[in-house]
Simulated scan of single mutants.
Amino acid sequence: MGDSIDIKTFNGYGTTLSAVINFPPEFQESQTYPAIVVSHPGGGVKEQTAGLYARRLAESGFVTVAYDASFQGASSGTPRQLENPHIRTEDVSAVVDYLTTLDYVDNERIGAMGICAGAGYTANAAINDPRIKAVGTVSMVNIGQMFRNGWADDVKDADAAPVLAMGAQARTTDAAGKENAFPLAPLHEQDAPNEELRQAWEYYHTPRCEHPNAPGFMTTRSLSQIITYDAFHKAEAFLTQPLLLIAGSAAGSKWMSDDLYKRAASRNKSFHVVEGANHMSLYDGKKEVAEAVGELGPFFTSHL
């Protein structure tokens, strides 16, 4: 297991990130190492899939950090469970800030990866922050696209206006002292519209991977930032870092990885499809995670 650390952010909200730092085998503080920031899915925490990937990548020779987003998990900030995508993106760079203060991290060899919405935030952070030298994604979700266009990309942007209005109304009721919660994954098995999202319920709300810090919902007011957010904004100009996208062949979310692959300016970009995997099996499936790490490890070794 890694060491628990706290990371102060400079995002203007004064949050402190609760994180775990993992070290390579036979780590020596007198040496320098490449490092990777690992970002969790929407509704998740560092003890779940992000922590799993962070530990596995540390075994491949990297210093890795998995962390809880601002306002979530064991990190500070109110309102609790705020999913502001701009701050989530900033959190990635806040971890990079921290890594640059460590003598044993080579500042020119810092990469980032994420799972689900954490992958979209990672891509957005890399667009904004050229200190991130290589980018990996697993089961990527561009949270703005997902909430605008649906899990299967079957809703037009303009038709998401009622969801935007829901977020705005939640701000009004929040101001009156009433809290609003909106599910990031099905809160009950019967709420799941398909088997893939039933597995999302299973992941977050059964012993498969439930955690007391991961309630599976966000503040409804978050929708007012999410609906107009594009994690890939200006990828055509500024996402120039080496890029590895990983998605399951059976993932309903795969279209978002397809979109970034098409839009990214990176001259060195690749897309690894895990045959038979869906969105959720890449979170914790033994075979699927092994295949993903088997691609991510050599990718980051080559580019960091």
Rank of each mutant, 00 (worst) to 15 (best):
M280I: 14
D284T: 08
N128I: 13
R88K: 14
G252V: 01
A247H: 13
A214F: 00
G276V: 02
S281F: 03
E189N: 12
L244N: 06
S266G: 02
E90G: 08
Q81M: 11
A251F: 00
T32D: 07
Q190E: 15
K234P: 02
A237V: 13
G177Y: 07
Y204D: 09
R55K: 15
N128D: 15
A69Q: 13
Y229L: 02
M113V: 08
Q190P: 01
A19W: 01
L99Y: 02
S30E: 15
R131H: 12
V20L: 14
L184H: 08
A123Y: 06
A66G: 11
D157S: 02
A165V: 07
H279S: 00
A247E: 14
G114Y: 10
Y204C: 10
A158Q: 12
A161E: 14
A35N: 06
A94W: 00
A264I: 01
H205N: 13
Y104R: 11
I143E: 13
F299W: 01
F71S: 09
L17T: 10
R55W: 12
Q225T: 11
A235G: 09
E275N: 12
I143N: 12
V92Y: 02
E83W: 12
Y98K: 02
N11E: 15
G276R: 04
T228W: 00
E108N: 12
H272K: 12
D3W: 04
V135A: 07
G136P: 09
W201T: 05
F300K: 02
A58V: 05
R88D: 10
L239W: 09
A175P: 09
P34Y: 02
T219D: 12
A58T: 04
T137Y: 03
L99D: 04
G144R: 03
S76M: 09
T100D: 07
S270G: 11
E179W: 08
V92D: 06
P183R: 12
T100E: 12
R55H: 13
I246F: 01
I7W: 06
E202A: 15
H233S: 13
I143R: 07
V65R: 04
E236N: 13
L282T: 08
S70K: 10
L197M: 14
A185M: 14
N194H: 09
